[in-house]
């Protein structure tokens, strides 16, 4: 019983995010004009999974007490690369996918190298590299276009066994293959330690540099997977910097809603996934309830602001004013 209580206390933020999402999605699916339909599920899942992957990428960096303002730009860069490489024979497609993922991981590694060895704050490094990545995306696709292997795309964006969206299965696979091993590994633990108290971690013999490099590289890889996935959804590459910026900002919001501390050292990718799902469902809900389109941006803003303000409840429970200063 105590074990359950401890587990609940440790994971209440992701659980809360999950419950909020479940309630919202249930409302959407019952109130929505389309009702419970496989097609509705597929579209909803496809829209949410790209953001969920970028939010996972963002989580990894935020855990080390950094922030990745280039996540959205790595996403559009890999989207453009995928729209150029992932076509042709099955062999070409496989090689192309590897190339896309490698590009994402390399971009993340560059961020990590500059943060670790350049000793620069991550917010500035990723601000600058984000500009570079969006420049590369624009060089590959000056105008939206390109193509991708359509059979694979259709398979990955529809559903399995009649009802389960393939994109969700893909997301689960990424969680099991990237996040869970990372969280279980020593290096993952070191990332939490580095984010929580960097000098203490360093003094205890943690290789902070290595931990950060791993976190940034995996983060780039996840953004790359997101870029690849969105190519499957749209069949094309688009180097719009505003799209990248919007994804970056939404990913930070999703991470916060999912209960990861922006001060590093606490939280996890599962919460961020639910955070991303929640954000996407808000958009759909507003549509389903027939809110006039002009009111939507305002409501999205208010919901976003309200969601992040929930974290402030902690402040009013503190007995000692000094604890306010993180």
């Amino acid at each position: 019983m105590t074990n359950v209580r401890i587990w609940l206390a440790q994971n209440y933020a992701p659980i809360l995010a999950g419950l909020v999402f479940a309630a919202m999605f249930a409302t959407y699916a019952t109130k929505g004009s389309a009702g419970w339909q496989v097609a509705v599920l597929d579209t909803a899942a496809n829209k949410a999974v790209a953001l969920a992957l970028i939010s996972m990428a963002q989580t990894l960096v935020i855990i080390t007490r950094g922030v990745d303002l280039s996540a959205g730009m790595i996403f559009i860069m890999t989207n453009c690369i995928a729209s150029a490489l992932v076509t042709g024979t099955p062999g070409d497609v496989a090689l192309g996918i590897c190339g896309v993922l490698l590009a994402g991981a390399l971009a993340g590694l560059c961020n990590g190298l500059l943060v670790v060895f350049g000793r620069l704050p991550s917010i500035i490094v990723t601000l600058a590299t984000g500009s570079i990545y969006s420049g590369i995306a624009l060089a590959i696709r000056p105008t939206p276009g390109g193509s991708i292997d359509e059979d694979l795309a259709d398979f990955l964006t529809s559903h399995l066994f009649g009802a389960i969206p393939t994109s969700l299965v893909l997301l689960l696979a990424v969680v099991l293959l990237v996040w869970v091993p990372f969280r279980m590994s020593v290096v993952g633990r070191h990332c939490y330690a580095a984010g929580s108290a960097e000098s203490a971690a360093y003094m205890s013999g943690v290789s902070v540099s290595r931990a950060k490099l791993v976190a940034y590289t995996l983060s780039g890889l996840l953004s790359g997977i997101a870029g690849l996935f969105v190519t499957f959804v749209t069949y094309s590459g688009d180097a719009g910097a505003t799209i990248g910026g919007a994804y970056t900002l939404n990913s930070i919001a999703a991470v916060v809603i999912g209960g990861t501390s922006l001060y590093g050292g606490a939280g996890g990718a599962i919460g961020s996934i639910f955070g991303a799902f929640t954000l996407r469902t808000i958009d759909d809900l507003l549509l389903a309830f027939g809110l006039p389109p002009l009111w939507q941006p305002l409501f999205q803003g208010i919901v976003l602001l309200g969601a992040v303000s929930l974290g402030a409840v902690r402040i009013f429970r503190l007995r000692n004013r000094m604890e306010v200063f993180q």
Binding site: I124, A128, T129, S131, I132, S134, G135, L138, A139, P142
Partner: peptide, 14 residues
């Protein structure tokens, strides 16, 4: 071109 401009901008900041 816009692409090279963004890359140059990023590189110079770094």
């Amino acid at each position: 071109p816009d692409s090279a401009r963004q890359i140059a901008y990023g590189v110079i900041i770094i």
